[in-house]
Every structure is written in C-alpha cells, then in structure tokens.
Design a protein around this nucleic acid. Sequence first.
DNA 1: TGTAAATAGTGAAACGTTTTATCAAAGTGG
DNA 2: CCACTTTGATAAAACGTTTCACTATTTACA
Lengths: 340, 340
Amino acid sequence: MKNITIKDVAKHAGVSIGTVSKVLNEKGYVGKETRKRVSEAIKTLNYQVNANARSLKAIRTKKVGMIVSYISNYYLMSIAKTIEDTLRSMGCHMLVMSHNENEQTERELLQLILEQRVEALVLIPTGANKDLVQLVIDQNIPVILVDKKVEGITTDLIVDDNYYGSYESISYLQSLGHNRIGVIYGLLKNSVGKERLEGALDAIEKLNCSSDKNLIMPGDFNEIKAYESATELLLLPNPPTAIYCCNNTMTVGLLKAINDRGLSIPDDISVITFGDVAQWELVKPPLTLMTQPLKRIGVEAAILLKNRLTMEEDYSPIQLVIKPELQIRSSCAKPAFKHS
Amino acid sequence: MKNITIKDVAKHAGVSIGTVSKVLNEKGYVGKETRKRVSEAIKTLNYQVNANARSLKAIRTKKVGMIVSYISNYYLMSIAKTIEDTLRSMGCHMLVMSHNENEQTERELLQLILEQRVEALVLIPTGANKDLVQLVIDQNIPVILVDKKVEGITTDLIVDDNYYGSYESISYLQSLGHNRIGVIYGLLKNSVGKERLEGALDAIEKLNCSSDKNLIMPGDFNEIKAYESATELLLLPNPPTAIYCCNNTMTVGLLKAINDRGLSIPDDISVITFGDVAQWELVKPPLTLMTQPLKRIGVEAAILLKNRLTMEEDYSPIQLVIKPELQIRSSCAKPAFKHS
DNA sequence: TGTAAATAGTGAAACGTTTTATCAAAGTGG
DNA sequence: CCACTTTGATAAAACGTTTCACTATTTACA
C-alpha cells in the first residue's frame, strides 16, 4: 500500500513533476488545460502532499508549538483555542503538549519542539529549563511566554497581574471590615504562586490587618492540600472571618471543607477566589472572585504570535501584564460580630 | 542564522554523516572513541535533528493526530491528556486540533492529518465527512472514533452508552415518584444528542410518565438556548416536577433559569444532568448526575491506540460502549404535592 | 515586422536525513 | 596461517517535495 507521490500524479497526467508542484502551490505559469488534467489526476489518485517532504525543502513548516502545564485546564485551553483559530486562519497548525509541571518532561518537550522545526512556540513554562528555552530563542524561533515567566529569559511575555489581583482581593475584604483574613496559597516555586502570595501578604501588612502567621496556609495548587489547610484554618480557636484562595482548584477543596464543617458563606465566613469558571456563578452563594481576562490573554497572544510569524526583522520583546478584574457576587459580607 | 545539520556535525567530528546518523540512532557499529567525538560535536554545536527530514526517509513520523470538537472542553481534554501521556511513553507526540463542530473545518483538519502522515488518528467527529474519514482509513492509518460515531464507517469506536445513561436518569426520577419530567436535549444531528434524547423518550414512554410534548425542549448543547427552554418549561401552567438535562453546558443555563425564577432545588423542582465536573459537587444542592467514566475512556483509547501503533497486521475493529454511572447527590427528591 | 515580455513547461539540484552496499581492519578458531 | 566473523567507517542512493535555470512558444505593441 505504497503512498501516492507527486511522481505518480505527474505520470498519470503526462506532465513533469515540476508542473504538478506548480499546480499544487498555485505558483508560476500553468496552462488551463494542463492544470485541469493535473487536478483530475490528483483527485482520482487521492493524492496527498507529504507535508514532511514539503517542509524539508521549503523553510516554512507551518507548525507552531504550544506547551502548556495541563492540557485539561480550562483556563489554558481557552487561550489555546483562540490561538489555534488564529493559526488556522494563517494556514498553520498547532502541536499541543503538556508537561504537567514536571521539569524533566518540559525538557523533553522543548527538545521535541526544536526537532520539529516549529515556527514559533507558545510556552506556559514550569519556570525551570532556562537553558533550553534560551536555546530555542537562539534558533530564531519566536517564543511567547504565557501566564508565567522564566527567570533570566527576555522574550515576549503575557501574564496576569497576579500581585495586583491578590492585593485587590485582600483590599476588598478589608474594605468590608475584615481584619482576620485567611489565605490559602499555591506552590511557591511557581512565579504565579509566589506573586499571588506576595500581593496578599503586602496588602495584609499595608492595610493593617492582623498579621497572624497561622492564617497563611499552603494549598499547593491542589484540592486535597487545600482542603486540609482550610480545615485547619476553620478549627483555629480564633478563626479568620474571611478566606482568600489563590486558585480554582484549591477553592474546590476550600468549599468542601467549609461545607463539611457545616459553616455557611458568607454568614460564618467570607470567601473570595482568584480565577473564574462558569460554575462559580452557580454555587450557593455565587462566588466573588478575581477574573483573569481569558479572552483578552488569548487574543493578545494570538495577535502577538501572528506578528512574530509574519515579521521577518528583529524586534524587541513585548511584555504584557494584564490586570484581572474583581467580580463581586455574594460570597463576601461584613464580618459577623464575634465575642473573642 | 543557518540551522546546524548533520553535515556540520560530521565535519566538526571528522567523520562521515553516516557515522553521525549511527550515533544518533544508536544503530550499527561505532567505535567508542568516535562515538564520544561525535557526541561532543553535537553538544558544542547544539545540533538538533530535523524531524521532518527524518520522517521523510524513515517511514515512522512519530506523530499521532487528535481532532476534537472543542479544545477547551474539560471532558475531551481529560481524554486527550491520558492519550498524550501514553504517546509520550512511546516516543510519539500529538497534534491536537479542534473543529468546533463545524463540518467544513473538520474537512480541512482531516486533510491536514492526511498531509502530515500521522501514524494514527483519534477523532471526535462531527458525524459528517464520511468520505474523508474513509480516505484516512484507506491510507492504512488507524482511526479511533471517540465519543461519537460516523454513520457508515466501521473502525475502532469508544463511546458512552448515551441511551442507557438517559434511560437510567429518567428511570431514577420516575422511581422517586416523578411523572411529569422535563427534558432539555442537545443537537440532534449529533449522534450523542440523538441517543440521549431517544433514551429519555423511551424511558418516559415505557415507564408510563406523562408524555406531554411540551416538556421536551431543545437546548442545542449551549447555555443560552438551554436557559430559554428551561425558562419556558418553568413558566408552563403545569410545569414539570423534575428536569433532565442532557449535558453540562446546558445545565449551567438550566440552573441559572431556576435561580432567576427564585425556585429551589429539589423542593420546587428536581434536577439531574448528564456529565460530571468538579464544581457540580459544590453547587447547592450538590447535583445528582450521570458520570461519564472519563478516566476509563481515556485509558481505553490510549491502550487501543498503543495496540494499533505497534500491531502491523490487519485487525478487526473494536467497539467499546462504556456505561455511565448514576451519581446520587441531593438535587433530586420526591415531588412535592401539587394541587393542579 | 521585430523585439521584448508574458506564458507554458521541463529537468535537475537541493533540502537533511536514513539506509544500503562496500570496504578495511581486527579478532577468532581450527 | 587461512578463512571466517565481528567491528568500524564510508560513500552514495533514496525519501518527496520545491525551486531555479532553461527552452520554447505565444502575445503585445511601437
């Protein structure tokens, strides 16, 4: 079951392979009659160009790589979708891979990217593997970092303003009168995790909230750990009157913990989270949160990508820091009076 | 900024390109000393094999295509993740694309798949484009259909038992005493949508529920339409005591409609849905639903894929129909007495 | 009518690999 | 010491395209 090649088409149509190529790529001069004969040969033989051979000769591979942390993550895939649509409109396509926040895996994927001769790379990095990322850049492959930066690398970057989002979240709670605010934070080796915690901590300090260290608990960006930390928080002799949770996944754990202790939001405790998901509007009560402007990030990334793909000249890296927005719903209220 | 080729490495190490190739692929005889020199040359030159050139000569492209309907869909991407992991362990990688249920887009993607000479294709089809799907199969590329079938195509298939899931959902409601059951169904040109509706309809008939046609409303698999239909259902002079909603997206609309009318679940109305998502456990009350065994589907698809990739011989297509499971939580209760 | 430009088609080189046939040296066993 | 086999390395062919240099015909227009 040999594959049909351009040679077969040429023979079938009685022309040279150069002519077939011209028909295929709509380049150069081909007679009307000949074009038709060739087209028909292609049809009847079910010929398909071999993209590998094509990108071997032609420099353009029409491939763009996208490496994300989690492929089943709604936030990331929303961005991916926007990018994919843009690419398709440019006749390119996308290689998607996920490293699951594993640095070794990311190494292998970057290696693959290099081998595949993609024309650009959209990377949600682990934060490590600076050497390989730099290597990709050195090969003149445009790299767009999304969501997270890699220390020591200067290239295009699109991130949420995590610090700002956290600061504002705490600030909002404080404005409602809370001054014992619990925080469940994510992995700190992750720049997102770090920035969100720092924003929260700075806000707590500057706004004169209680800076009880016991109220700041790790959630490791996972549901289980968040559940445990939340439970601990709730069992404190003098528990917080509000909890700020640094991402969606951990919020699932937090809410379960609150449920399991029979507490009610916002009467017993206020809750605010960083990150949006359709269902947070349906939880009772609907969650107040900091939304990441998903669409915006996706669109910006896509635009940037398009520019990088069409621009030949050198360019200077663009850094986009996108501010999240406070979405006020019903999970935060004034703190109840407590006789401590 | 020319790319480094195998030729450069050969020159740098003072050997022939054949030898470099042998080192690269760990094939044939290479002297210990030579191997070292070559390896060093590769390191210092930062050489990266050109995967395109490689797959031109070697038949294996190490690429598997995956075409899904929506790339930001949690259900599909969970499956994709499992498959991707398996592939990586086999040294292959995945081309992910989405057709957004657009048949023309699917055509283009299938074309791309053909051109890319992938070794296998995992396809969540629109249901159309039978000709192109068949063409892929004819090229001896194993095709695994997931989630949905394509009429007239026989190949590997892994689907939920949608009919069963719907039937059981209605059956559960009926067992609680409901006999005016509303249904919000999805797109019917979609086999999933069709099967789910049929299961529900058959159950309603066989179990002697009221077969009031007004209770069966389209939701088109989207939130807005579902919201409208749900609202209509709730405004009926004699509204249903329970509603079965055929997928997650539509359930968002349904719940919003119920909220907006100030109704309470399950006191005023019972709700059951087809499809799981972490947040459905956190909604008040936690939703009773039919879960699709995501992990199972992903794993089965991955295993099947692995087999197809390693098996040379012809094989007969496997059809896997996986039963969803009823997950009882608190959104369904006995119907309240109504003086109609 | 003559000449340049436009049109139509060809053959061969090039892209960066892998593979195959070949050669040469070095071990091996009788 | 001879006839193998094993080991080590090479040059050239092949993979399926695109592109470039060329030839040959037709068209345009001054």
